[in-house]
Nucleic acid binder design. Structure first.
Lengths: 176, 176
DNA sequence: TGATATTAGGATAATTTTATCCTTTTATCC
DNA sequence: GGATAAAAGGATAAAATTATCCTAATATCA
């Protein structure tokens, strides 16, 4: 669902956030995050263009965060690299439009909106916290809308999957 | 984010739900939904294998819903075709594991969990409602967790996009 | 039984996303 | 200035997703 590129951006940013201001080269970040170095470099370029990281060429150069991790939202990172595709109008612009698939697309957009909101309220600092403070707190409802992560953690760990679904040809996705 | 295949499955299911029990051929559904006929056929096969629709060959055959639309959740449809990829363990199984990227992956999984929950509580009947009952209700918080859609509708229509993001090479996605 | 409609399934092609490689630019150090 | 380090950018390759096409299986109808 979230693209690989998005994962890479987030992982790199976390790694960067943890290195305490010291510049990291693309190669270092790739090693630390176990991501393909070449591609990661492209992703870092995107982040640089978006003004989230600053890059410096030459000896001793590399990448640093352009702002404190607490002031960078996960949403910024994601959108810099592979934006959440909000749906503003039904893909099916036709007679059916008004009466048509609108509930469907409203729902889909709603899902995107949820993700946006969730990511908007999560900072890179939140994502970079060390030590997994595993909670038993129920994930729902989301309680009061304050800032910082490690607040909501889902309750179950089961793989609820509807009906007899499971196989299915055109579906496949094998990403890590 | 949601794959094209997922959209197709949902659109086809809505179309099917609206045809009131009469079998629809893949070609008919493709025409009604404006989707590529050949590929849609594959998607329908997946839905059939998942037990969501029933298929019948030969003259007068086609596809029908296996159950009333009210008893089919959006989640089932999505999972039949391109499952929501819940994250159960950090991709980076390494020394860094515990101390590492876990907050990140917890957050990502949380986002997936939200989508799952949202889709689980939306039925195909909800998605198939005609006439767009546009609400002004704020999208957040999600209020009480009862069933049925057309409940949450997002408040804004603005394209909030972090910082100066926008361009960016490795990112592209041009889907409809 | 034969003709026709329609799904099932496999092979293959087109497109998009990810990944690699190479050259160029810019910086540091000597 | 020359050597070296590192990002920038472009061309290309590999992999995954989406799409098309063809044949086979199965059903209906005459």
């Amino acid at each position: 669902m979230l693209s690989r590129t998005t994962e890479y951006a987030l992982r790199a940013a976390v790694s960067l956030a943890r290195s305490g201001g010291a510049p990291c080269t693309a190669a270092e970040l790739a090693a630390a995050t176990r991501l393909p170095a070449g591609y990661l470099a492209k992703v870092l370029q995107s982040l640089a263009r978006a003004g989230i990281v600053r890059s410096q060429r030459g000896l001793g150069g590399g990448f640093v965060l352009a702002r404190p991790a607490a002031e960078i939202s996960a949403l910024e990172l994601v959108n810099a690299v592979d934006p959440i595709p909000r749906i503003r109008s039904c893909p099916l612009e036709l007679p059916e439009h008004r009466s048509g698939l609108c509930q469907l697309h409203r729902k889909l957009d709603e899902a995107y909106a949820q993700i946006e909101a969730s990511f908007r309220h999560t900072s890179l600092a939140d994502l970079s916290q060390r030590g997994g403070g595993r909670r038993a707190t129920p994930a729902w409802p989301p309680a009061a809308p304050s800032r910082s992560a490690t607040k909501k953690v889902r309750k179950d760990g089961k793989g609820v999957r509807g009906a007899g679904a499971g196989r299915g040809k055109p579906a496949s996705r094998k990403r890590t």
